[in-house]
């Protein structure tokens, strides 16, 4: 039985649905950690870091004006008109799911549909005080339910690989942003205060990435910044590390090439290798010494090119008539 190849529009929808869903989870993680970075009297600065790592400065200024914790949480959690918000990402995920309904499992669709409704019902009260952390937990759990249902029910044909590619590209990108938040955070001047504050911040970062416990298992008893950077960027076993994401991206591209004969994957594979080489080719200490922020910026740009390469080959700039089979 030979199944027809995947409709290009479905491949694109799978890729983007996965990206949007992953984005929701990561935004929830970022917001959760930002809350723990508030220091008395300077709350706004911690929250503005979030706006900066998402490159949302202009967008935020236009919609919200002055920076306050409330303005930033509303901007990301309760503003459907802001295209970078959680509700907007969830809306986009659901629209993609809707176009993909002929392909995805009924259970996937049902959960996306229900969770979308829940996200759209976010009320101002959910952003206040301790409710905010609970909201972030619910968002993470909703996406984790999606991921679990997908893992357990989605048919593993081409669509699955495009879904995985979307998720991994987004996850790698989001991990670089999470790491970058450290660049924007302030630390106290005194030597000992600085050491302690940094410890707290790195710990918070690891917790936000669900990597604190794993990190403790692999890191030395006393650790420094380079250990954390090395872990989030280049650990081979941590599910949210950039390196592991790149490895998996290569795996899915290779499967598409070998099992489904999709030779358009060649360029994207090369991009993934290059980015991986850049991470593997230098130590975390070296990266920090050369400028962590600049390095993360470069990885983010590489990922954009990688996604564009997948899109060009399979979604958008698709060339009609080039390889037409004759019936």
């Amino acid at each position: 039985m030979t199944a027809a190849p995947l409709l290009a529009r479905y491949a694109e929808g799978m890729f983007w649905m996965a990206r949007y869903v992953e984005r929701v989870e990561n935004l929830a993680r970022l917001i959760d950690v930002t809350q723990s970075f508030e220091s008395p009297g300077r709350e706004a600065e911690a929250w503005y870091a979030l706006v900066r790592i998402n490159a949302d400065e202009e967008n935020f200024a236009r919609r919200c004006g002055a920076v306050s914790p409330q303005a930033v949480t509303r901007f990301y959690l309760d503003d459907t008109t802001n295209p970078t918000s959680v509700p907007a990402a969830m809306e986009a995920a659901r629209t993609n799911a809707r176009t993909l309904r002929p392909l995805i499992s009924t259970e996937m669709w049902k959960q996306v549909n229900q969770f979308h409704r829940e996200v759209m019902e976010t009320a101002p009260d959910d952003l206040e005080g301790d409710a905010l952390s609970r909201l972030c937990a619910r968002l993470k759990e909703g996406i984790q339910a999606h991921t679990g249902i997908t893992e357990g029910t989605l048919f593993r044909d081409q669509g699955w690989h495009f879904y995985a590619l979307g998720r991994l590209v987004e996850r790698a990108d989001q991990t670089t942003r999470l790491l970058d938040i450290k660049y924007h955070l302030l630390v106290p001047r005194g030597r000992e205060e600085r050491r302690l504050a940094e410890l707290t911040q790195w710990g918070g970062l690891l917790r936000a990435a669900a990597g604190y416990h794993a990190f403790r298992r692999v890191a030395a008893a006393t650790f420094d910044a380079a250990d954390v950077v090395g872990f989030l960027l280049a650990d081979r076993s941590f599910p949210r590390s950039v390196l592991l994401s790149l490895h998996e991206i290569e795996h899915h591209l290779t499967t598409l090439r070998i099992r489904y004969g999709l030779h358009g994957t060649a360029d994207a594979l090369e991009r993934a290798w290059e980015t991986r080489a850049a991470i593997e080719g230098r130590s975390a200490e070296r990266i920090i010494a050369d400028g962590l922020h600049e390095f993360l910026d470069r990885v983010q740009r590489d990922l954009i090119v990688l996604a564009g390469s997948i899109g060009t080959a399979f979604f958008r700039d698709w060339r009609p008539f080039a390889e037409a089979d004759s019936p």
Binding site: A4, P5, R101, P102, Y260, P320, F321, A324
Partner: peptide
């Protein structure tokens, strides 16, 4: 879904040499 066939939109189909194809990740499919 019940038929087990792709749901296509107009833009997914192209006509070449009086034959109809759908645009797939692997190229044109009759």
């Amino acid at each position: 879904r019940e038929m087990g066939v792709p749901l296509v939109e107009g833009a997914d189909l192209v006509v070449d040499n009086e034959r109809v194809f759908m645009r797939t990740t692997a190229g044109l499919w009759p």
